[in-house]
Amino acid sequence: MDVLLFTKMLSDKQINDLKRMQYKYSVSDVSEFIALLKSTMYKCLPLRDFSGKALVYLDNITRVNLSSVKLLLSPQINENSFSVKAMEDEIHSTLTIENIASSRDSIRRILGGYAPLNENENSIYGIKRGLEFIADLDHKITEANLHKLYQTSVGEYLDENDKLLPTHTYRHDDVFIVGNKVEQQGLHHSKLPEYMGELIEFINQKDDIHDLVKAAVIHFYIAYLHPFFDGNGRTARLVHLWYLVQQGYSSALYVPFSSYINDSRKDYYKAYSLIEQNANISGMIDITPFLSYFIENIYNKLSLERSQSDTLQIYKNLLSEGRITEKERDLWNFVLSVYGVNEFSTKQLERDFRNAAYATVRSFVLKFETLGLLFGQKYANKVKYRVR
């Protein structure tokens, strides 16, 4: 193949859609292009497709924005293991992606320590328990702990027909992933222990794959294998977060990843479909479409939150200089945990915090606005604030 044509195809925006590439160029050009990628550019993963061949991806188009890395590595001032606001958003979004009904009121009730009242609230309670499980750094990613996470967050709340057998770590029968048509059959159940064992080994081995890319690989592979009858998507998203937490990305617990996925849900599922469609043309499972989706729609979007990370650094400096009182510290931690980046009023903060007079709350808000940590927006005769 001519080098100019190869470089043109390599930089084409449609590179993740081989069918469109065939229309744009030709079937023979795409065949030659794939052959060159196989021999010169594809990176092989120590994970296998259903036929036993290695999964591959293109490293050159799966680069992560460094500001996303900085944000996720930034230590949080708040002492809570998981932001309450982030937990609420994560629970609501991961269930919405699966078309499981969940109201914000129910989520707040469960997060407030109340027992679930119905099936939908059981689902909420399960994800809450799952998030608390992965927030504990002592819970290393092992096959036994993965089973415990699944049972804790999903398995215990399923219908009897979808539950794992008492002596099984994974499903004991075959499963089909069905949309408007059958799109994929999960890995044959007899192979799951072997393939999942390889995944756990991959998770814990040291390699040159960027942590954020590797987390997305893990996410894809769990959904691809479909090791459970139900709850594979929820489990994949939890394990994605779990891996980042274990690698030291402490702020992953403050980012509701699933809300970004839910906002781009159509593209999330399209990435899976493209991988299957491309495999029919190339004869291999190239997971670049999924990695590209995650980098563009989730990781790179995190760079927009960088200003909040800078705000936290300013606060940390002020705290070390002794310019923040103990009560102000408590109010600030409360604002971060409960409101996140959402707006609140002084009256709302007084009511929700419950341990400070209105004058104290108002003084805190005005001081932190002056310091550049809060931003006030006037609405008619009311002012609402949010973290800058």
Rank of each mutant, 00 (worst) to 15 (best):
4 L>F: 09
6 F>V: 01
6 F>C: 10
19 K>R: 13
20 R>M: 13
21 M>N: 04
35 A>W: 00
42 Y>A: 05
46 P>C: 02
47 L>E: 02
51 S>Q: 14
55 L>H: 04
57 Y>F: 15
60 N>K: 10
61 I>L: 06
68 S>D: 06
70 K>D: 13
71 L>M: 09
72 L>N: 05
85 K>R: 15
87 M>S: 12
96 T>L: 13
101 A>L: 11
101 A>F: 13
103 S>E: 05
105 D>E: 10
110 I>W: 06
111 L>P: 03
116 P>G: 11
122 N>D: 09
126 G>F: 02
127 I>L: 13
137 L>V: 13
143 E>V: 09
145 N>W: 05
150 Y>I: 07
152 T>E: 14
162 D>Q: 10
163 K>N: 10
173 D>L: 11
180 N>W: 01
187 L>P: 00
188 H>S: 13
189 H>I: 01
200 I>G: 00
203 I>R: 03
204 N>K: 06
206 K>W: 02
221 Y>M: 05
221 Y>T: 03
222 I>L: 08
226 H>S: 15
239 V>H: 03
240 H>K: 00
244 L>S: 01
250 S>Y: 05
256 P>R: 10
258 S>L: 06
258 S>W: 09
269 Y>T: 11
269 Y>F: 14
271 A>Q: 07
271 A>H: 08
273 S>W: 02
281 I>P: 03
283 G>I: 07
284 M>N: 02
292 S>W: 00
298 I>A: 08
302 L>A: 09
304 L>K: 12
321 E>F: 11
322 G>S: 05
323 R>W: 00
323 R>A: 14
335 V>W: 01
339 Y>H: 14
339 Y>F: 15
341 V>T: 14
353 F>N: 10
354 R>Y: 09
356 A>W: 07
357 A>M: 04
360 T>I: 12
360 T>N: 08
362 R>T: 13
363 S>H: 11
369 E>F: 01
378 K>F: 01
378 K>G: 06
379 Y>W: 02
382 K>W: 00
